[in-house]
């Protein structure tokens, strides 16, 4: 099994990078409406979801939990202007689920913006929201978010799950990059982003236990660190995580001295904002995978000590 310190260190360094580059999470209020203001909300939503897990997970360590909380507060106060930008986005595209999706983790940590909540409740009542065309995996995520918000999911999560690629446990040799991301995100939604690993139905957990080692092997050799990191999150959500030593060692070695994780092969060069846009996601994923895997490794150690 992989050295827990190695796994833990990846997360420590990733969070330090995210904190020192927090200004990179920026919106463009003056963007051409045809380009889409809501597009730039996506990184903020991912930051919030993952930092919430890091903050709640506890195993990340005091310094990391503190950084995760400060990152969240920064994103709420500075990037989203206390949620005002989410309200603006909702007014630009009233039917879009994005403001609600970005809002949810902040709300779960105590932030509040009643306009977004009223819009979510209203949208939830409309047939349009449940008919809104999106990929089945994202639909599963939206149903899960409705449940977390306290609404009765439309469609129910079990129905939404049935439409995903993963639920049908198809031929594992057909998996390519896009399918792999559908797999990882279906797992994120089923487990509330790693908070409830037991949310994985047993047949899906068994399917992943059989085939995840192949996909880890594959994307490790292709040095696709962003996807490898997401697959390591999936591993940490399984009933018996492998904490694959070869994958974790290479993943740690790919991380830069300042904590940044390249998305693919090596670090890009150029304009700092553009570099940020490429590497913020794999770096967030590195912090996420590290926290969950550290947690699982420590609980396995505790169980071994108790038995």
């Amino acid at each position: 099994m992989t050295d827990t310190r190695l796994i833990h260190t990846v997360g420590v360094r990733a969070l330090e990078w995210l904190w020192s580059h927090r200004e990179g999470f920026r919106l463009e209020p003056d963007v051409d409406p045809e380009v889409g203001f809501l597009e730039r909300l996506k990184p903020v939503g991912e930051l919030a979801l993952i930092c919430k897990v890091l903050f709640r997970e506890g195993v990340a360590g005091a310094r990391q939990a503190d950084l995760a909380r400060r990152l969240l507060d920064h994103a709420w106060r500075e990037t989203l202007d206390g949620g005002a930008h989410l309200v603006l986005a909702q007014r630009i595209e009233p039917i879009s689920p994005i403001p609600f999706e970005v809002y949810l983790p902040f709300r779960e940590l105590g932030h509040s913006r009643p306009e977004i909540e009223r819009a979510a409740v209203l949208n939830h009542r409309t047939d349009s929201w449940s008919a809104f065309e999106m990929t089945p995996t994202r639909r599963l995520g939206l149903s899960a978010f409705q449940r977390r918000f306290g609404l009765s999911p439309r469609p129910p999560e079990a129905d939404a799950l049935a439409g995903t690629w993963l639920a049908r446990t198809p031929e594992p040799w057909t998996v390519e990059g896009h399918i792999a991301y559908d797999i990882t995100h279906a797992v994120f939604h089923l487990t509330d982003w790693g908070e409830h690993p037991d949310g994985l139905p047993p047949n899906i957990a068994g399917y992943l236990a059989d085939w995840l080692p192949v996909w880890l092997d594959d994307w490790l050799d292709l040095r696709r660190w962003d996807l490898l990191g997401e697959l390591l999150v999936v591993d940490a959500c399984l009933p018996r995580p492998t904490l694959d030593e070869r994958a974790w060692t290479a993943f740690a070695a790919a991380q830069q001295a300042d904590g940044a994780m390249p998305a693919l092969r090596s670090m890009p060069e150029g304009d700092p904002d553009q570099v940020f846009d490429v590497v913020y996601h794999p770096t967030l994923v590195a912090a996420f995978a590290s926290a969950l895997a550290t947690s699982r490794a420590l609980s396995e150690l505790a169980q071994a000590a108790a038995s």
Partner: peptide
């Protein structure tokens, strides 16, 4: 059998 199955998937992917 599961390991050989994994190897089959790996070989197809590669």
């Amino acid at each position: 059998p599961v390991d050989v199955s994994r190897g089959f998937v790996r070989a197809v992917r590669r």
